[in-house]
């Protein structure tokens, strides 16, 4: 009886550890158009409250949200996030370290107007602190530039 109880306890612990190692990653992505319109006070459009602290230090006076998503993505698989008809973001979480930091590859791609060519406008490998923001940006977008704010956390 005691043997079975111990075995059950061990199996439960193993299952918990296995589940923790294989849970997907929670990702938040907010795509922002940043521009300078001659404002004396920085303007943040609707839906940017969560990322205001991340983008507020950039040298722009107007920030407008293009799109955003909160989702979970699997480890070791590339997941695509469409930003608009030209830009897409691809995320590939590769590992999670002992401090909960997520090592991932992030690619911002741009597709030409005639849609016959796509290149990596920005390709980076980084280790993200859980729950902290990261900005990817600088690419032209209409009268401003694209800024993508990423947040990731182990689920």
């Amino acid at each position: 009886m005691k043997f079975f109880a111990l075995m059950l306890c061990g199996l439960s612990l193993s299952a918990s550890v296995y589940a923790a190692d294989n849970e997907p990653i929670s990702v938040s992505m907010v795509a922002v158009q940043a521009s300078n319109e001659g404002r004396s006070v920085k303007y943040f459009g609707e839906g940017l409250q969560k990322v205001r602290s991340a983008i507020g230090g950039l040298d722009y006076d107007t920030f407008s949200k293009l799109t955003s998503i909160d989702t979970t993505i699997p480890l070791n698989e590339e997941t695509k996030f469409r930003i608009n008809e030209h830009y897409s973001l691809y995320l590939t979480p590769m590992s999670i370290d002992g401090q909960g930091r997520i090592r991932m590859r992030a690619r911002l791609t741009i597709t030409s107007r005639d849609k016959d060519k796509t290149v990596n406008a920005l390709d980076t490998v980084l280790t993200m602190a859980p729950g902290k923001h990261l900005n990817l940006g600088g690419l032209r977008l209409d009268n401003g530039e694209l800024v993508v704010v990423l947040t990731a956390r182990e689920n």
């Binding site: 230090g57 902290k132 900005n135 940006g137 690419l139």
Partner: peptide, 13 residues
């Protein structure tokens, strides 16, 4: 960038 020292990767086009 910013008070929170947000890491930023930037492309200068």
């Amino acid at each position: 960038t910013g008070e929170e020292e947000t890491p930023t990767v930037w492309v200068n086009v």
